[in-house]
Lab assay of single mutants.
Amino acid sequence: IGSLMYASIFGNVSAIIQRLYSGTARYHTQMLRVREFIRFHQIPNPLRQRLEEYFQHAWSYTNGIDMNAVLKGFPECLQADICLHLNRSLLQHCKPFRGATKGCLRALAMKFKTTHAPPGDTLVHAGDLLTALYFISRGSIEILRGDVVVAILGKNDIFGEPLNLYARPGKSNGDVRALTYCDLHKIHRDDLLEVLDMYPEFSDHFWSSLEITFNLRDTNMIPGSPGSTELEGGFSRQRKRKLSFRRRTDKDTEQPGEVSALGPGRAGAGPSSRGRPGGPWGESPSSGPSSPESSEDEGPGRSSSPLRLVPFSSPRPPGEPPGGEPLMEDCEKSSDTCNPLSGAFSGVSNIFSFWGDSRGRQYQELPRCPAPTPSLLNIPLSSPGRRPRGDVESRLDALQRQLNRLETRLSADMATVLQLLQRQMTLVPPAYSAVTTPGPGPTSTSPLLPVSPLPTLTLDSLSQVSQFMACEELPPGAPELPQEGPTRRLSLPGQLGALTSQPLHRHGSDPG
């Protein structure tokens, strides 16, 4: 009997000691992992102490058991019943959930998450997105703005933001810190809205009876308010094209079509300037034949640059190039080494500058006005007194259609001029006259002087055409309008007829 009692007592005591040691061994194993994590990542002392304290409290609170892992091991129907039991206190005593059906309560219970916070733990920081609604079931918390405590909340209090009033989550206007050990039930806004969409009859009752104890939403960050730039940057990543407008005076608003859609830094370009900076079609017209890549860069430059609305530039004389043409100036200075066709295309550029300027006046029909002061630039669209967005969009579309028509007509005119030049060069190729044979009589004449090349004649003739079109064909006081194609086609051969009437002889060394 004594040996039996000794064996039973010894066996029970050893089993008890073994169970104690097993729990202690698990605790030390998990604690060792936490300390190894702290050492590996070199976490500083204040945060390291918070980690160790939280682990110790969580171990004593749950005995080292992962409740979520245990809950996920059950089937979904059983999980709903378990969640309904775990959140029964909240669902029974909170006013917004009263009167809900059994199915609605089960769906809500599945969406709730339980959070346990030790003292000093910050649940929400200032500036964080308010993605959830919090219900306090135990403990107390404090809300701070800077170093000032603005509120202390306790059991059955609710904090967050009214989700039904805002389409997008706002930002917190303060820090939420736990004063004691707290148990909180939180539900994400997407989950709550999903359940309320499934039960629309409960939705009206819920929003009407929901009383948020403390609204954390920062009202200064609401979209459309003066301080909402940061919020707009976070939620409006896919922005449309940006529009900046110059201020319109009362006198300017009476004149229709007073602005032109141009790229940034293009205030001095012609009315047909689009795409790359520098001139019509993204580059100076005089350098068009020598740089074919300008047409390839036109599309990307047009689509990537934001639109700006600026006044037209001052008018340019008909014979003056659009500006920024070092290529043609070098050719004029060193005409001995340049291609003979460069002079002809220089005359073509003069005609283009004249036609572009006159067509700009035809479509816009307003006098040039000086540029406004820099303080009046970049007025935002949302400022008071601005035109409605639809009106601005319609004006932009009208300007775009005008620019497209202008570009089409300029292309047709350019093709006409090039065809005339090619026809003239085919009839009378460039050549130098040879020395004529002296006559049989004693009164022999001296050799004839060489005839100037055709490109120079073409430049003079085209300059005469531009001056003739600019000065004589337009009646005084009438708006400057571009001439039609047949009129220009008839004027060019008439001007060139006198020049080509002389018999030109080919030089023996000319390969053409």
Rank of each mutant, 00 (worst) to 15 (best):
S334W: 05
M328L: 10
Y199M: 03
I136T: 01
L366Q: 10
S452H: 10
R237I: 13
T373C: 10
T416E: 04
K240F: 11
P370E: 08
D191I: 03
R302H: 13
P374L: 09
G139E: 01
H505N: 12
R395I: 11
A398G: 12
I212V: 12
L366C: 09
V392I: 15
L499T: 08
D190S: 07
A344P: 10
S294V: 05
G512P: 05
G139F: 03
L341D: 05
P285R: 11
I152G: 01
E365D: 09
G282T: 08
Q255W: 13
Q483F: 13
R274C: 13
L454H: 09
P264F: 09
V149E: 03
T219Y: 12
A498S: 12
V417M: 15
G508C: 09
T437I: 11
W207H: 06
R395P: 12
T373A: 12
A398E: 05
R359Y: 04
P476A: 10
P264H: 13
L231W: 10
L216R: 02
P511K: 09
P264N: 15
S501H: 13
S382M: 15
L309V: 07
S335P: 13
D252M: 08
K251S: 12
L496W: 10
P370D: 10
K171R: 11
L192F: 03
P370S: 09
P200Y: 02
H507F: 06
S244Y: 14
E393Y: 01
D413P: 03
T445W: 06
G227E: 06
N220P: 15
P226N: 06
I152E: 04
R389Q: 04
L457R: 09
D128P: 02
L427K: 11
M198S: 09
T426I: 12
R409H: 05
P162C: 07
R168T: 14
R361V: 09
V259N: 13
R177Y: 03
E325W: 06
S137W: 05
D204Y: 08
S466R: 07
S433V: 11
S353C: 04
G441L: 11
S342Y: 11
F245A: 10
L179T: 08
S286I: 07
P200E: 06
L481C: 09
S294R: 05
L406H: 04
S236N: 09
P322K: 09
S314T: 07
L231F: 07
T219R: 11
E296T: 15
S466Q: 11
T131W: 13
S433E: 06
Y166D: 11
L427H: 10
H205I: 08
D460T: 12
K242E: 11
G441E: 07
F235G: 12
G146R: 09
S203D: 07
P317F: 11
G497Y: 13
S446C: 12
P311G: 05
E480A: 08
G288P: 06
R368Y: 07
G508N: 11
P475M: 13
T253G: 13
S209V: 10
G170E: 01
G494E: 13
P315R: 06
C338H: 14
L153D: 01
R274S: 07
V417R: 03
V259I: 08
P430L: 11
P503R: 08
A269S: 10
L481F: 12
P372W: 07
A269G: 09
V417G: 01
G234L: 11
T131I: 08
S334A: 10
S509T: 05
A431Q: 14
L459F: 12
S446H: 08
V465S: 07
A498Q: 07
V392Y: 05
P162I: 03
Y134A: 02
M414R: 03
T500P: 08
P256D: 11
L231P: 13
E329K: 10
L327Q: 13
L399V: 08
P162F: 03
G439M: 09
E296A: 11
T437K: 13
S209Y: 07
S244K: 05
P264Y: 09
Y363G: 10
F206D: 01
G234I: 13
Q419V: 07
N350K: 15
G224H: 10
S236G: 10
C338K: 15
L133F: 04
P440S: 13
Q495A: 10
V417Q: 07
E296F: 07
E393P: 09
S383H: 15
G441N: 04
D157V: 02
L192K: 01
P493I: 06
T249W: 07
N339G: 12
P455F: 04
I158A: 12
H205C: 10
S353M: 07
S382T: 08
N220R: 14
S208Y: 06
S225Q: 11
F135C: 01
M469D: 15
P476V: 09
M198L: 07
L459Y: 14
G127C: 01
S287T: 04
W207P: 03
P374D: 10
L130H: 03
G174R: 05
D413T: 01
L216F: 02
T408L: 08
S208K: 09
E230C: 10
L144R: 11
T249H: 09
L462Q: 12
A151T: 09
S225V: 11
L309F: 06
S334P: 06
A371S: 07
V435W: 09
Q419C: 06
I141H: 01
G170V: 02
A132F: 13
I351A: 06
R168D: 06
L427G: 11
S290K: 12
A415P: 12
R248G: 10
T337S: 10
V148R: 10
